[in-house]
Design a protein around this nucleic acid. Structure first.
Length: 344
DNA sequence: TATGCGTGGAG
DNA sequence: TCTCCAAGCAT
């Protein structure tokens, strides 16, 4: 077979990863969800913790979303977790807990796109679908000498891959992913040790990393927030974010965006009075926390406050001991650290 | 097709 | 510190 050398390379060079010890489609699916835009080394502990807690898809379907989000805390892109929960419930309800072998049925599930559908169908079920992630796009672009990722070139990449995955598609897909992550990286191409180097167009060029062209990144804006550490006795006030959008369903210290022309002191009292019902007296400034999301940065100024009254709406008083029971974003953990509350 | 969606590692 | 990058999907 023409591409058997890729399988040979994979056998002796593949990384040992927790989700490679199994053909269980649930585990492979979970790993693919977690690995979206996320480094392998970051995913491994989250994956192990999740599988230990939820060894089957039925357990996921039965779980409360808040408990799932707590396990996901810190991994980012939390809609992956919400979609996986929904999809698990759909599979348990409609497919008796058996993950569909049919590509069209599987890709119809929330959070499953072309890549994940192809990866699971090929790795777990040995079906010939090219799992075209960022690695394969880059590796095959270079192999074919393609400068740009256009629709037409993507078609060429898919066509080429279809000739490569006729036998053992799961291992071929993963071999190419491993080549992409260890040899044919975005900024470094170690062509001398690449099993594809004989026939690779980019390998015989001056600089393989010129393929394909990188998109220019747009600079991202900074938004300014004011936040309140509002407490009495050992209780603090937290709010739950909306169920859609950024950090959906996570908890946070009350915070509100302000404009440059607004009076900082008034903003927090207005917000807590109108939206939370308590209103605050500001005691002192605790500090400033900066954090970056993928599409904008935030700068949060945190004030220690006392509530004018403790009857609140759209928010909840929790004891300091209970903080670990709720899911907070990274920015909020930075706020906690600035206060001196150290938690995981 | 472009943008929203998080976080931590690496240079 | 700053910037780019890392197994994408939804809209």
């Amino acid at each position: 077979m023409k591409y058997e050398y890729l399988l040979d390379w994979y056998d002796s060079n593949k990384r040992t990863l927790p989700w490679r010890n199994t053909k269980d489609p649930y585990m492979i699916w979970l790993s693919e969800i977690m690995l979206q835009q996320t480094q392998v080394s970051v995913v491994i502990p989250y994956y192990n913790k999740w599988i230990k807690t939820f060894p089957t898809i039925e357990k996921v379907a039965k779980a409360d979303l808040d408990n799932l989000l707590k396990l996901w805390e810190g991994l980012g892109y939390y809609s992956r977790c919400r979609n996986f929960h929904k999809a698990s419930q759909y599979v348990v309800t409609n497919y008796k807990g058996i993950i569909p072998r049919d590509y069209d049925l599987f890709i119809a599930l929330p959070g499953v796109g072309e890549y994940i559908a192809s990866a699971v169908m090929s790795i777990a079920y040995d079906q010939s679908y090219p799992a075209i992630d960022g690695n394969l796009k880059r590796v095959i672009s270079r192999y074919l000498g393609l400068r740009k990722i256009t629709k037409r070139n993507l078609f060429r990449i898919k066509k080429k891959l279809n000739t490569m995955i006729q036998i053992n598609p799961g291992d071929i897909n993963q071999a190419l992913m491993d080549i992409g992550s260890s040899i044919c990286k975005s900024t470094i191409a170690k062509c001398s040790i690449c099993p594809l180097n004989i026939t690779c167009k980019a390998a015989s060029s001056l600089d393989a990393t010129q393929y394909p062209e990188k998109k220019k990144k747009k600079s991202i804006p900074t938004k300014h927030f004011i936040s309140g550490y509002i407490s009495y006795d050992n209780y603090i006030l937290i709010t739950k974010r909306p169920s859609t959008g950024l950090l959906a369903g996570l908890w946070e210290l009350p915070m509100v965006e302000y404009r440059n022309d607004s009076k900082l002191i008034d903003v927090l009292n207005d917000y807590t009075t109108k939206s939370l019902g308590c209103g605050v007296n500001i005691i002192n400034k605790i500090g400033v926390v900066k954090h970056a999301y993928s599409h904008y940065k935030i700068c949060i100024t945190l004030f220690k406050c006392e509530p004018k009254n403790i009857n609140v709406k759209n928010s909840q008083w929790i004891h300091l001991n209970e903080i670990d029971d709720f899911t907070f974003s990274k920015a909020n953990h930075k706020l906690f650290n600035s206060i001196g509350i150290i938690n995981d």
